[in-house]
């Protein structure tokens, strides 16, 4: 990859990579060539060399292309402009289209998952205006002017969000399908706790919010809207505990000998 404005023809595999990880820049790259900032962003988005290796090398398997379905002929089209992970998005959607399907099918942001499509699993959890919500029960049309953060927007450049790093360390997932929702939920949970918001298991609801202590049961209850069928809950809770307390939470298993 070269710097400057020199036109550089991307291979199909490279195009696919950009398609997948930074679709918003694809057109620019294809027409204007790749620039240093694109590469830096690629590293940022993908989290570094290991990933770039995985993606580049694995050609078709990772070749996920972005489809922006034509909106021609869509009944009840709604134009909506909103921010996703700090970037402005302007699209026209079918009024029936959920935020989840918009992210996954139109914006190439497939990190948010569809588990049940009816608010019963939490896999689609994203953060809208600072709060965790279910993108499967949010119409894209209602997002006008709003700010949406998805799993793809949590890391700060090469640096993973503390919750993402803790999830890796504590093996807080197996198949990884509920993980985006779990992490978005856990990140928002930190804010809720800071704000002193109560839960059903809060011992004394009448006490002011600042007295809140995030006990194990508080974590469990507050994370109960995110189902994990592989059964990573204890590991998820340890990751949350570690991020909340700022202290190492030991990982334990033992051998007989």
């Amino acid at each position: 990859m070269k710097e400057g404005n020199e036109n550089l023809r991307l291979t199909e595999a490279e195009k696919d990579l950009f398609n997948q990880v930074m679709p918003e820049d694809l057109a620019e790259i294809v027409t204007g060539g790749i620039q240093r900032r694109h590469f830096l962003k690629l590293l940022t988005v993908t989290g570094g060399a290991l990933l770039a290796f995985q993606l580049f090398d694995n050609h078709e398997v990772f070749a996920q292309s972005l489809i922006t379905n034509s909106t021609v002929g869509i009944e009840n089209g709604v134009k909506v402009a909103f921010m996703v992970n700090g970037q402005k998005k302007q699209i026209e959607v079918d009024s029936r289209m959920t935020l989840l399907d918009t992210l996954r099918e139109r914006l190439g942001l497939t990190g948010s998952k569809k588990g049940c499509d009816q608010g019963q699993c939490g896999a689609c959890t994203v953060i809208v205006e600072g709060r965790r919500v279910l993108s499967c029960l949010t119409l894209a049309a209602t997002c006008e002017g709003k700010s949406v953060t998805t799993i793809e927007g949590l890391a700060n450049g090469l640096e993973l969000h503390a919750m993402q790093a803790a999830f890796i360390k504590h093996d807080s997932f197996q198949c990884g399908y509920c993980t985006s929702g779990q992490i978005c939920s856990a990140v928002a949970l930190m804010t809720e706790v800071k704000n002193g918001e109560a839960s059903y298991v809060t011992p004394d609801i009448r006490l002011p919010g600042h007295s809140l202590r995030l006990s194990d049961d508080e974590i469990r209850e507050r994370m109960s809207g995110n189902i994990c069928r592989c059964g990573a809950y204890p590991n998820i809770n340890n990751a949350i505990k570690e991020v909340y307390s700022g202290k190492d939470v030991p990982q334990t298993w033992q051998f007989s000998s």
Binding site: R131, R132, L134, S185, A188, L189, G225, N226
Partner: peptide
């Protein structure tokens, strides 16, 4: 419900 649903 869940925290997410109560937020909505």
């Amino acid at each position: 419900a869940s925290a997410q649903i109560r937020n909505m």
